[in-house]
Design a protein around this nucleic acid. Structure first.
Lengths: 215, 215
DNA sequence: TAATGTGAACAAATTCACAGCC
DNA sequence: GGCTGTGAATTTGTTCACATTA
């Protein structure tokens, strides 16, 4: 299998979202055009995206909703549940602990960590908050494979190295700055201010006479 | 000026972050190679990205940190402050109200809204939380140009239409599903579960023998 | 000498268009 | 007739390599 682009993966997530909704509504077939409309893309892109992984549709008909949903879950690796921990129990970190959408989409937050003793030793939205000392031990005990990093930038690098050393395989980082870890692992970044800057550019007329990403 | 790609804009934000840090440290010159290293890209890309907007460097020397920082702030439209509102004062919405990084990067949250009367009529982290009835009036009074949408998906569409009608020019949406507004405006999405699905794909070996986005 | 700015070469992603099947 | 799957064409984005300037 060749290298799959990041854009393709992101779109697969959007298709999956839609298929779950269609499935709930009891729809049985869906066309590439419909999937495209619901995810702001084109029918050709939908078909090309899927074609990297096999052929899932019936010519002349479309795709079987249940079948494609299951296939996409397997492709994305969300046919089973993931055990996730949140490192940094500040405002964003604790907000995520109670965010039901994550569990609904297969990501179960099983632990949180913080260096501040005032925040540890209790449960928040049912998730235990441990002191950072216990990071490595608890991550292993809980078989955590993905960590969401919400610490201040100053400690992000250290925490990333520690979770990587503890066998975590992926990090979703809310820390603005890039981070390089000693052990290589998959990292994605989310940065609210960066997204706002993107909007600022579009609104300010950066690309004049209209803008790229419009709903 | 031709159409600037989204990837270029995102990288400009990363360069700007770095220039601010360099500026704080009193650095006066920086090369495309250094900017590239700090943002996980290549020197050629840095130069090409900047070349779309003019020529900012001195051959043989590099870029003047202050000068380039100011230029990038102008390009991104963050040379002045933006007035932002948060619609939906749930867990994520309120977490954002106290998130100092936004103000530090030029985005001031001046109001929040919610439909739940239990949440309105008070201040959270110094930001007044208004009932949703007052949405249009307050957005105009406060001269809000960007809204961060953190409502449940069920009401996201309606709220998007209402803020668009109230003259808001950009939306950053945490609502998973795409949304189409009657009035067209700039929209960006942030979706924690989608990012986790991307990590899940990489970890599960979606692209075998290594993965794309590694630190 | 060192590093920018930029056309030209290249690679990747998207779109087109149509053969193949339901 | 309708819709998928896919090579080919096109467009977009990246990398190369070098003339140019401090």
């Amino acid at each position: 299998m060749r290298k799959i682009s990041d854009s393709t993966i992101r779109r697969l997530s959007l298709y999956l979202d839609q298929l779950r909704a269609l499935s709930d509504r009891g729809a049985s077939l869906v066309s590439s055009r419909e999937l495209a409309e619901g995810s702001g893309t084109t029918a050709a892109k939908v078909r090309k995206d899927l074609s990297h992984f096999g052929s899932f549709g019936k010519r002349g008909q479309g795709y079987d909703v249940e079948e494609l949903r299951e296939s996409l879950e397997k492709i994305l690796g969300v046919e089973r549940r993931w055990r996730v921990a949140v490192v940094g129990a500040g405002k964003i970190g604790t907000a995520l602990l109670g965010y039901g959408d994550l569990a609904a989409r297969g990501f179960e937050i099983v632990a949180a960590f913080d260096t501040d003793p005032a925040k540890t030793g209790r449960e928040v939205f049912g998730v235990p908050v441990y002191p950072a000392d216990e990071l490595e031990a608890r991550l292993r005990d809980e078989r955590v494979r993905i960590v969401i990093l919400t610490t201040p930038p100053a400690v992000a690098r250290e925490m990333a190295d520690r979770v990587a050393a503890a066998g975590v395989e992926g990090i979703l980082s809310f820390a603005a700055s890039r981070l390089e870890t000693e052990v290589p692992l998959a990292v994605r970044w989310m940065d609210v201010a960066l997204e706002l800057e993107g909007l600022s550019f579009l609104i300010s007329g950066g690309s004049p006479g209209g803008n790229g990403d419009v709903a």
